[in-house]
Design a protein around this nucleic acid. Sequence first.
DNA 1: TTTTAGTAGTTAACACTGTTAACCAGAGAG
DNA 2: CTCTCTGGTTAACAGTGTTAACTACTAAAA
Lengths: 207, 207
Amino acid sequence: MTDESTNLRRVILDAARHLLAQDGYKHLSMRKLASAIGYSATTIYLHFDSKDALFHALIDEGMSRLYKALHEVHLEHADDPIMRLRMLCRRYIQFGLDEPEYYEVMFMLHPEHMERYPAAKYRRARRNLDLFAQALEDGVAQGQLSVTDSRVAASSTWASLHGAVSLLIAQRLDVRIAQEEFIQASIDQALYGLLPVKPKNNPLTTI
Amino acid sequence: MTDESTNLRRVILDAARHLLAQDGYKHLSMRKLASAIGYSATTIYLHFDSKDALFHALIDEGMSRLYKALHEVHLEHADDPIMRLRMLCRRYIQFGLDEPEYYEVMFMLHPEHMERYPAAKYRRARRNLDLFAQALEDGVAQGQLSVTDSRVAASSTWASLHGAVSLLIAQRLDVRIAQEEFIQASIDQALYGLLPVKPKNNPLTTI
DNA sequence: TTTTAGTAGTTAACACTGTTAACCAGAGAG
DNA sequence: CTCTCTGGTTAACAGTGTTAACTACTAAAA
């Protein structure tokens, strides 16, 4: 029935995520996925329109999980926007490292796959960015930060974090670089640029 | 002969890059690539061990092109490390936007493909990072920047830029955000964190 | 001049892939 | 007792990366 049906959908998604983490994206085939859960390949198509649709479902789940994590931070540091911002950054990176399978499908898969990702669902993804923008605005309101456009600033902050997580997951960093030190440096570098006090004759303001 | 042989190798690489830009990674097959240059599929295997090897060759080329671009900046602003740093950032982002096909194979393809990318060749990739580290060290020497470990700082700067380029190429940014404004904000945010003058009682220093 | 070796390319085939069409067992309703 | 729906199957299509075996052709050695 419908209950059993949604149940199998869950089983498929979990197995997909598991295989993804185990063998990587390239080796995940519908047949392997099916046999892993003891069904025939075509059964998956009763629950998902295509392989891409299955990935989109994983992306949705990932976005929700990320939002859940970030929202916790949001609530926990509701009164201190600066601390909140710092913890949002930490939490974002932690999410990427804790659940790389999710992170990869969500943000690192080739745009080819994302193209067909329904635009409407992007909105849910944007909620995550809104939490950053909110923290920035609150920080500005308290006179502790200085940003002209909070959405742009939130985006570039996100870009920094995304870059850090991408390089960490893909293991493209020099092995001699300590992970924690790198994370700390990335967050610092991203946030110090938001401070209101800019030194006079700042050499960086040119161009 | 050998000349003709390396020639065909060139033709294959160019066609691959072209098709990659045109149809995306997922739709690039050996047979299509072969028929695009008027040869049979197996001919490609006379010049490349595998599809992955072909991608690795593209990565190599891309790394060289990037280095060429960054090295120009390096020479042009040899005497002004701050300006050099700024222009290195700009040039990096510009490279990503000008040659997205290269950039995607180089940095955005799934780690699965990179795993087999020979470790020795990573060194050539690291030359690019060295240009950033060099600029940072020069800036520190002139007392205009403050970084503890130039390699870590260079990496996190790179991460910021990579994040920005990734999001731009994948078109994952909110459409309401102007591209140039975003780029400017990303560079600013990355570089301001390197300034020596940190405001007292800086709220960001906690954790 | 004939034979041999090597080169540059081919076709045929293997074991896969995502996806669709056609089919089949069982269950509940008329 | 039939009829229809549900949840699943097998068979098949077109396409994938890759390998093995084969064919021209060229150049040197006999």
